[in-house]
């Protein structure tokens, strides 16, 4: 074959030199460099798994604690002697923030999505949608600050006359600000799935004499249900992984309580607490942050994967 290749090159006239060899090198060099870039994404995942896995094992060995006792122990006192590492309070706190913020964000986000995809006139949409996207660009530290500055004082003013004590750091404020934070996530993802419901379906319903409300809630929403659900799960996953807003709003007291007006601690806040504290390298307390990180990673990953699977089912139905 090389004979014909050379011949093809030979046939070039004075104006058309044979393809210089370095062009081939550039070609494969670029491909290799780009491949290396893509490899970084894979290595990142491996890095996360290895770091969390290896350090967690080290933690379980040095602390002499079983993973089950770690996950289901209801007392977290890393500074006590001997230290206690039961992260049930952290899981409880994380769950509380996830549930509370969902109560705020899911209905508001979903209604916004319905408005944007079904009701909004073009112009309103072209203004409102970028506004919601801007909201998503506000850094989380700002939400945390907002909880301290606005939400908690507002809660105090409302609830303390009724005889309820609101702590400076409390779960409710965290739920409110994290909820506001994830509204854009719910609304923009849900809006995407709602608007990808085929138009024919809407027209069929209108053709039968349905009102806009009936079309939105009984035709479009059920058709897009799995996609909307996927956006909900993704938003909850975001709430679970949220750090700074919760650190500033909810404080750092690990406890299992149903009272949202007291301070709690989530998995993410615990990690920040350990790092900001004095724990030195290799001690059980230091290593515990990796074990908590692994639990957090696993929780968000499960949520993300479920969301991805649900979304894929939606796409299979409509695309």
């Amino acid at each position: 074959m090389s004979g014909s290749r050379d011949k093809a090159a030979d046939a070039s006239s004075v104006h058309w030199p044979a393809r210089p060899r370095y062009l081939g090198w550039i070609e494969s060099g670029v491909a290799l460099a780009l491949f290396a870039c893509a490899l970084v994404t894979v290595l990142t995942t491996l890095g996360i798994l290895i770091v969390l896995g290896a350090q967690s094992i080290a933690f379980f060995q040095t602390a002499g604690i079983s993973p089950l006792a770690f996950l289901f122990g209801n007392s977290l006192k890393p500074d006590a002697k001997p230290p206690l590492f039961g992260i049930l309070p952290l899981i409880w706190g994380t769950g509380m923030v996830a549930v509370g913020s969902s109560l705020v964000a899911l209905p508001i986000g979903l209604l916004s999505a319905i408005y944007l995809s079904e009701y909004a006139p073009r112009q309103a949409r072209s203004i409102l949608k970028p506004m919601l996207e801007l909201l998503a660009g506000v850094p989380t530290i700002v939400y945390g600050y907002l909880a301290l500055l606005l939400v908690t004082p507002a809660l105090r003013r409302m609830l303390e006359p009724m005889g309820l004590r609101v702590e400076t750091f409390n779960a409710l404020a965290a739920c409110v600000v994290v909820g506001i934070m994830i509204i854009p996530l719910v609304s923009s993802l849900s809006e995407d799935v709602l608007s990808s419901v085929p138009r024919g379906l809407r027209e069929a319903a209108y053709g039968l004499g349905a009102t806009k409300f009936e079309v939105s809630t009984r035709v479009v929403l059920p058709a897009a249900l799995s996609g909307v659900l996927a956006s909900f799960i993704l938003a909850i996953s975001r709430a679970v992984g949220e750090t700074m807003a919760v650190v500033l709003a909810a404080g750092m007291r690990p406890q299992i309580t149903l009272n949202p007006l007291t301070s709690i601690e989530t998995m993410t806040t615990y990690i920040v607490q350990v790092v900001s504290g004095e724990a030195s390298y290799g001690t059980p307390k230091y290593l515990s942050l990796f074990a908590v990180g692994l639990s957090l990673f696993a929780a968000t990953m499960v949520l993300n994967i479920i969301s991805g699977l649900v979304l894929r089912r939606f796409r299979e139905a409509y695309q």
């Binding site: 995942t45 890095g47 969390l52 679970v240 992984g241 957090l296 994967i305 969301s307």
Partner: peptide
């Protein structure tokens, strides 16, 4: 690889912090 990237997008930022700390 594509699924992996989609999943990485959903990893909480603090986990990247842990990765950076250890690595």
């Amino acid at each position: 690889v594509q699924t992996n990237i989609a999943n990485l997008a959903g990893v909480p930022s603090i986990v990247y912090g842990i990765l950076g700390l250890a690595l």
